[in-house]
């Protein structure tokens, strides 16, 4: 169970990105985070694994306060939280397999990883993960030789190498075409339903939210505007979240 309590983030320059946000996610849930551009979705996701240091509030995961964890503890917490990014964030010049293996870094012997030694098990696991997302044949290519959809699959494989209990997905399909978007979302769905991994996924399209999420929260200028099942987002709610002039498209 992940509890976010009164989370506030103020960026330098007095930018209030998150304003006293509280919500709870049960294990096994697929939570969608929606909101306009700049509403604080990315910030929220990054506060959970402390890629962004929250200004105030708490993130409590299975009873452990992530926000109070020391540096060492934080590394331990992070390795159980996979992350998938809008622009994939692969290391372009590295091979696909290396990118995937980097998901194991929290587990392996640090000294050995620095000389690129990974155990047989890890190599095997990397191959399995690539197979699962259907790009096992691309393992030896450079990451930037892959298409966008393929790159995002590598991103998912990398996250899965962490044997995560949570996957944070920050607009994972925003730079992909609709067909690819569905295939990527299905991979996340698969992870969620077959492995019981909690998925917290920020999304721009409501049809995707309806289709994949078991619950949704909405942010507007850093404030939590909505928390409930996707179906409950009616026209009134929609205007509340996206502003009065917004038109529903999805």
């Amino acid at each position: 169970m992940l509890e976010v309590k009164n989370l506030t983030k103020i960026y330098p320059g007095d930018v209030l990105a998150l304003d006293n946000v509280s919500f709870t996610v049960e294990s096994g849930e697929f939570l969608a985070v929606i909101g306009l551009s700049g509403s604080g979705k990315s910030t929220l996701l990054r506060c959970i694994n402390r890629l962004v240091e929250p200004t105030d509030g708490q993130v409590i995961w299975n009873g452990v306060d992530v926000t109070q964890a020391s540096q060492d503890e934080l590394l331990h917490i992070r390795r159980k939280i996979g992350m998938v990014f809008q622009n994939f964030n692969l290391v372009n010049r590295s091979k696909v397999i290396t990118n995937v293996l980097s998901g194991r870094l929290g587990y392996v012997n640090p000294a050995l990883s620095l000389i690129n030694r990974f155990s047989k098990n890890d190599m095997e696991m990397a191959r399995e993960q690539l197979e699962r997302v259907g790009i096992a044949d691309q393992a030896q290519k450079r990451a930037d030789e892959l298409s966008g959809g393929q790159q995002q699959r590598v991103g998912i494989a990398r996250a899965m190498m962490q044997e995560p209990e949570i996957v944070l997905a920050d607009e994972p399909v925003a730079s992909l075409d609709p067909v690819l978007a569905h295939s990527i979302m299905q991979h996340l769905e698969d992870i969620n339903q077959n492995e019981g991994v909690m998925v917290i996924c920020s999304l721009h399209f409501l049809d995707l939210v309806h289709r994949y999420a078991s619950r949704a929260i909405a942010l507007n200028e850093g404030r939590l505007m909505f928390d409930g099942p996707p179906k409950a987002i009616d026209d009134a709610r929609f205007k509340e979240i996206y502003g009065q002039e917004a038109e529903r498209v999805g």
Binding site: N49, L51, L75, H76, I77, R78, R79, K80, I81, G82, M83, F85, N87, F88, N89, L90, V91, N92, S102, G103, R104, L105, G106, Y107, P110, S113, L114, G155, R158, M161, Q162, L168
Partner: peptide, 15 residues
């Protein structure tokens, strides 16, 4: 971006 991604895996600074 890649830095952020690798850091998110729980890698230490050297990694």
């Amino acid at each position: 971006g890649p830095l952020e991604a690798v850091r998110a895996t729980g890698a230490n600074r050297a990694q």
